[in-house]
């Protein structure tokens, strides 16, 4: 449905991978359990096993490999800076010196641990949860007792993301036709501000039309969530497998 969020665009004829035939709730719970387990451990064998499991999950979900790995390693600039600075800010035995600055083994290790954790969690999250339709995520969250208003907000947001993004594209084309090119000028920042202001004005006007149209069709504040989410035997098998994996990760962490 949503092309902006759709990493996993599939053709109609293509059969769904087994992982994607699991109940969406199973996948959300599995991703959350994996994240908690990975954040809790610090041993490199345990973290390595978690990373391998995340990579296998990505393969099982048949996500595009290069695009997904690129998204995995993308982090905010300041996080990358923080990781690079850690060897120089954590005290401990010196590993090497860079321009007279001593880098400690402890710091290097801590930076590597954080990088492994962050990438493994995000990869598993994208493979398990990100490989489904955004609206399915909303339905599954509602079944997991997330407050219904929050779910409705999520569903509305997902529904109109592409619409607003296309509106943004039209405004950018119009600016380009008038010779606008982004530079380091006050004019650029003012134009960007006008662009966002205009997007908001149009978005609000659109929302008024939508509300009227929805009321005409009997909208009472409830979006009936029509789906047939059902736990099947394969969810049980997957849960057992996943639980075994997480227990192995934890066992590796506390074994000498």
């Amino acid at each position: 449905m949503s092309s902006l969020l759709g990493l996993a665009q599939r053709g109609e004829a293509e059969p769904l991978p087994v992982l994607c035939r699991l109940d969406p709730r199973t996948r959300i719970i599995a991703a959350c359990a994996f994240a908690v387990a990975m954040v809790a451990v610090h041993d490199f064998r345990a973290l390595g096993l978690g990373m391998v499991a995340a990579l296998l999950t990505m393969a099982a979900a048949r996500l595009p490999v290069m695009a997904t790995l690129k998204r995995m390693v993308m982090m905010d600039g300041f996080i990358i800076f923080m990781l690079l600075m850690l060897p120089f800010t954590v005290p401990g035995p010196v590993a090497f010196t860079l321009w007279g600055w001593p880098a400690s083994w402890a710091g290097l290790q801590q930076a590597a641990v954080i990088a492994l954790k962050a990438n493994a969690v995000v990869l598993a999250l994208m493979a398990l949860v990100g490989s489904q339709e955004p609206s399915t995520l909303g339905h599954a969250l509602a079944r997991l007792k997330v407050p219904v208003r929050l779910v409705h907000l999520l569903l509305f947001t997902v529904r109109y993301l592409d619409v607003i993004h296309q509106e943004y594209g039209r405004l950018r084309v119009a600016m380009k036709m008038r010779g606008f090119r982004p530079r380091n000028t006050l004019h650029t920042y003012r134009s960007m501000g006008y662009l966002i202001g205009m997007l908001l004005v149009r978005a609000l006007e659109r929302s008024e039309r939508i509300l009227k149209a929805m009321k005409c069709r009997g909208f009472t504040g409830q979006l009936p969530l029509l789906d047939d989410l059902r736990y099947r035997p394969r969810d049980g098998w997957f849960a057992a497998l996943w639980l075994g994996l997480l227990l192995l990760v934890l066992a590796l962490n506390w074994s000498p």
């Binding site: 907000l153 529904r159 109109y160 607003i164 978005a203 609000l204 929302s207 008024e208 509300l211």
Partner: peptide
């Protein structure tokens, strides 16, 4: 307010 909030959130 739900439609407005959702669309502004998307914006």
């Amino acid at each position: 307010k739900l439609p407005a909030a959702g669309i502004l959130s998307a914006t």
